[in-house]
């Protein structure tokens, strides 16, 4: 039950993009086309889950026992960066179609604050390992959901005349604001 609560909380109530403001850059940058948005969402979720697990292990098995919490940021970001590299190599080896679909998005993920943010929040919220896992899956699902909804809306908006000043990032922000308003309905759930 507890895990479901963590999952729903991360996916809907505290949606990473719409209420935590994490991963805004890919949210603005990769939400133009539905296909790439979906691929990006899946890639981020994938990396998130692995990164959350690895950073959790590092924090509690290495940093805490050796009193090295000061190295938290440096070690986390290094883990994430190398993890992304590894994942990229792994996918390229294992599945060509998957690599073609996700390939170009993987390098971008290193600088996606949603990943580091996830790792930091998991530590901050003092989640145990399983909770961290549920948290990562939920956050990834929420990120993908927001990205896909936004991509759908932006494709729709290509067919209408958005005022010139609002074209692009500005209208994306307004839509994100409206979506955030809509997501406020989830508040207090659970």
């Amino acid at each position: 039950m507890n895990l479901i609560v963590v999952f729903i909380s991360a996916a809907l109530i505290n949606n990473f993009v719409l209420s935590q403001f994490l991963g805004i850059c890919p949210f603005v940058g990769v939400s133009k086309k539905m296909d790439s948005a979906f691929s990006m969402g899946i890639a981020v979720t994938f990396v998130m889950v692995i990164a959350a697990m690895v950073t959790w292990l590092i924090y509690y098995l290495v940093l805490v026992p050796f009193n090295l919490e000061i190295l938290e940021y440096v070690s986390f970001i290094l883990v994430i960066a190398s993890l992304v590299q590894l994942v990229e190599m792994f996918i390229r080896k294992v599945s060509k179609p998957l690599y073609d679909a996700l390939g170009i998005f993987l390098p971008l993920i290193t600088t996606n604050c949603a990943i580091l943010g996830l790792a930091l929040y998991a530590i901050l919220n003092e989640y145990n390992f399983l909770q961290t896992l549920a948290y990562a899956v939920g956050a990834g699902a929420g990120f993908t959901l927001a990205l896909v909804i936004m991509a759908g809306i932006r494709e729709e908006l290509e067919l209408v005349e958005v005022p010139r000043a609002f074209k692009g990032a500005a209208i994306t922000m307004v839509i994100a604001g409206s979506l955030a308003l809509a997501f406020m309905g989830f508040a207090g759930l659970i």
């Binding site: 539905m34 896909v148 909804i149 759908g152 809306i153 494709e155 729709e156 409206s178 979506l179 308003l181 809509a182 997501f183 406020m184 309905g185 989830f186 508040a187 207090g188 759930l189 659970i190």
Partner: peptide
């Protein structure tokens, strides 16, 4: 189960956001 007594507005707004996807 939510924190608010009424959810008509949120349910409509949320589904509005999904309409482009549904159409597609």
């Amino acid at each position: 189960w939510g924190g608010l007594p009424e959810g008509v507005m949120y349910s409509i707004l949320f589904m509005n956001g999904l309409v482009p996807l549904l159409n597609r």
